[in-house]
């Protein structure tokens, strides 16, 4: 893992106007992504978790520039791509690919697999050898070569997602953004696709931004974990320490919600049940967005927004009262 960041996200912001009559226009905005900054280093996989609606997918689409951010910057390999037009982005598309969530929606139902993949292989430039490249791709994602002649409807969900992955790999990208690549799949198929992604990570030294709402899934593929809540990045830490000792109370609650199969271990574990629902992203709470649901909130939390800052080496959290080892000891 080299030290150069491949992607640098700086204060990224994306708002959506709430649809309504033209009289009420401008009244409401959904704060999908609000002032989020992080970096992805060459060769690493950054896992991004959060509840549905917290802005993960919008963030993903901003990074690959299918959506234009409202504020902040996206730097890819040092190049600012925040506001570049779709046309001028074309040469960069080769380097930036997205794996979609729903393999039933992400493949054109009228195109055969061969056609879907050759559209992606075109980005490599030079013609020739395309048939060979296609077989190689199919082999890579664990599909037999005869699947090239299949229509998407003839494939199962897992097979479709493998085609989606093959399409993302086809132009030999430097960054793959995987937007919930396994959450639309049956549990039985999920493991297969996850293992495939891990194998590809290792073999091709991929840099990935892996988005999921499932901490269990993300653990298997990520080097670092980011946690999002209501459009904000609230924690960013190395995967191995994160699962043992999350700093942010929200991360702690999320982790405690993972079911533990062992009843004895379950008995000893403290489960944190969050009260209330996720507040509306149209009118997010003042100060720390998590404070109305936080067990450790104090008066400062309602007024001052905590910045994302380093509390322990390599572990960032946006919290006034992070769950540092010493404070944890006090609480229990």
């Amino acid at each position: 893992m080299s030290a150069a960041p491949l992607v640098r996200i700086q204060h990224l912001t994306k708002h959506f106007n709430v649809p309504g009559s033209w009289l009420a226009r401008g009244k409401g905005k959904v704060h999908a992504v609000d002032d989020v900054s992080f970096e992805i280093f060459e060769g690493e996989t950054l896992g991004l978790v959060g509840e549905s609606g917290c802005g993960k997918s919008t963030l993903a689409r901003c990074v690959v520039r299918l959506v234009e951010p409202d504020g902040g910057a996206v730097l890819f390999d040092g190049e600012d791509i925040t506001h570049r037009s779709m046309r001028s982005l074309r040469p960069l598309r080769r380097r930036l690919q997205l794996i979609f969530q729903d393999p039933y929606a992400s493949l054109n139902p009228r195109h055969r697999v061969s056609r879907i993949l050759s559209a992606a292989l075109q980005l490599r430039g030079s013609g020739g050898q395309r048939g060979e490249a296609m077989n190689e791709l199919l082999r890579r994602v664990g599909l037999a070569h005869y699947f090239a002649e299949s229509l998407p409807r003839e494939l199962s969900g897992g097979q479709r997602q493998r085609v989606g992955i093959a399409r993302a790999l086809a132009p030999e990208p430097r960054l793959i953004v995987a937007d919930e690549p396994v959450s639309a799949l049956d549990v039985s198929v999920r493991a297969g696709v996850l293992n495939l992604l891990r194998r590809l990570q290792r073999e091709l030294r991929l840099t990935m931004l892996f988005i999921s709402h499932d901490l269990g899934v993300i653990r298997h593929v990520s080097d670092r974990i980011g946690v999002m809540y209501l459009g904000k990045l609230v924690e960013l830490a190395d995967a191995d320490v994160f699962y043992d000792q999350p700093l942010h109370p929200y991360s702690e609650a999320l982790l405690s919600a993972i079911p533990v199969p062992d009843p004895e271990a379950r008995a000893t574990r403290r489960q944190i049940v969050l009260k209330g629902d996720v507040p509306s992203p149209i009118a997010p709470p003042s100060g720390c967005r998590f404070h109305p649901r936080c067990a450790f909130a104090q008066s400062i939390c309602a007024t001052q927004e905590p910045p994302l800052r380093q509390h322990l080496p390599g572990r960032l959290a946006a919290c006034h009262f992070p769950r540092l080892p010493e404070s944890r000891a006090d609480a229990t």
């Binding site: 074309r90 080769r94 969530q101 992400s106 054109n108 559209a119 992606a120 399409r167």
Partner: peptide
């Protein structure tokens, strides 16, 4: 807004080409 159209955009196809090869057949 279907994902396969976004995917085509993600591959850098031009809007005209997307209309003719992705949208029209459907």
């Amino acid at each position: 807004d279907r994902e396969f159209i976004q995917a085509a955009r993600g591959l850098g196809l031009s809007e005209i080409r997307i209309l003719l090869t992705e949208t029209l057949p459907n």
